[in-house]
């Protein structure tokens, strides 16, 4: 019986897993959480990539936006991402308590009660959408609301615990920021932001599966059906290599379609080539112990740099054109 009980050392609300078959939560009234714990709920490190891709979407749009309104749009994207992360942590407090990587988060560590996290997430989400609508346009606000709901309802609640395809479909949530940035500036969505959406959507599986290969035991302990847990390392490595091909095509596509210039095209081609080489190294690796998974760790690290560099190249290309 998996029972989640108040594990906090000083009687504060929290959750810890005892065993693996069912879940119940017992909470005690917790004293007010520290403001740093609210900040931690928003997953600030993940937010940097969200903010950067959103900013690039805004800067590559063919119309200029007033700097104050542009700043507000990016702030709203960041707050919306923070709200989605807080609601994710609220829903997954039981899973987080089971994984080494996440057990020190505010909820499983007992530094905050779940109700506070829920109120914070809902409040921040509603605030970000309303502010986006008032400052820019209601289409961008609608896309922002859809991205928060997609991450929370489709990925966190529906897919994550049910299917190894969780991050394939759920990856769409992380692909919204450039579309929102573009929509904030223009009020609509055209082919280029849709290609940027497709790029992040196809980038997410190799990015996450590279990580999940070497933290497989964590996911297995928590009962999360990530691909390496369900289908094994070999199939996961094949899938990583397979997803890299359409991802590279989506990355380079804006160049031949005339939506970006040679600066972006050569950067996208070069970076995608390196990504492909690293994914082939992962495919060739047969290791099962995390200590011998250097190609996987290298691919995961490079995948973050890849997205930063490719979006940076797009903005540079637009500015120099």
């Amino acid at each position: 019986m998996l029972e989640l009980f108040n594990a906090a050392p000083h009687g504060r609300g929290g959750v810890v897993a005892k065993d693996m078959t069912s879940v119940s939560l017992t909470e005690t009234a917790a004293p007010p959480a520290d403001w740093r714990d609210f900040l931690a709920l928003t997953k600030p490190r993940v937010m940097t990539l969200v903010v950067f891709t959103g900013l690039c979407g805004l800067l590559t749009a063919p119309v200029s936006i007033h700097p104050v309104l542009g700043f507000t749009a990016i702030l709203c994207i960041a707050l919306g991402a923070g709200a989605a992360a807080a609601l994710n942590m609220w829903y997954e407090a039981d899973l987080d308590a089971l994984m080494k990587r996440t057990r020190s988060r505010p909820l499983p560590a007992g530094r905050m009660d779940r109700e506070t996290a829920l109120h914070f997430g809902v409040g921040l989400g509603v605030f970000s959408v309303l502010l986006m609508g008032v400052a820019t346009n209601w289409f961008a606000a609608g896309v922002l609301a859809a991205s928060i709901l997609f991450y929370v309802l489709v990925y966190t609640v529906w897919l994550k615990r049910r299917t190894p395809q969780n991050i394939v479909i759920g990856g769409a949530a992380g692909a919204f920021p450039p579309v929102i940035g573009w929509a904030a500036a223009t009020g609509d969505v055209t082919l280029l932001p849709l290609l940027l959406f497709t790029l992040i959507f196809l980038w997410t599986p190799p990015h996450f599966w590279a990580l999940s290969l070497y933290v497989r035991s964590d996911y297995a302990a928590a009962g999360v059906p990530m691909l390496p847990v369900v289908s094994g390392a070999k199939v996961t490595r094949q899938q990583i290599a397979l997803y890299t091909l359409p991802m590279a095509a989506a990355a380079v596509a804006p160049w031949p379609l005339g939506l970006a210039g040679a600066i972006y095209g050569s950067a996208a081609a070069g970076l995608s080539f390196v990504f492909l080489l690293l994914s082939l190294q992962v495919l060739a690796n047969r290791a099962t112990e995390p200590a011998r998974m250097k190609p996987e760790k290298r691919l995961f690290a490079f995948s973050i740099l890849y997205l930063f560099a490719i979006f940076g190249a797009l903005v540079l290309d637009r500015w120099l054109a």
Binding site: H66, P67, V68, L69, T72, L75, V134, A135
Partner: peptide, 11 residues
């Protein structure tokens, strides 16, 4: 921020 947004919108 609300004040700045109001000014920006008027501009």
């Amino acid at each position: 921020l609300l004040f700045a947004i109001s000014i920006a919108k008027m501009t």
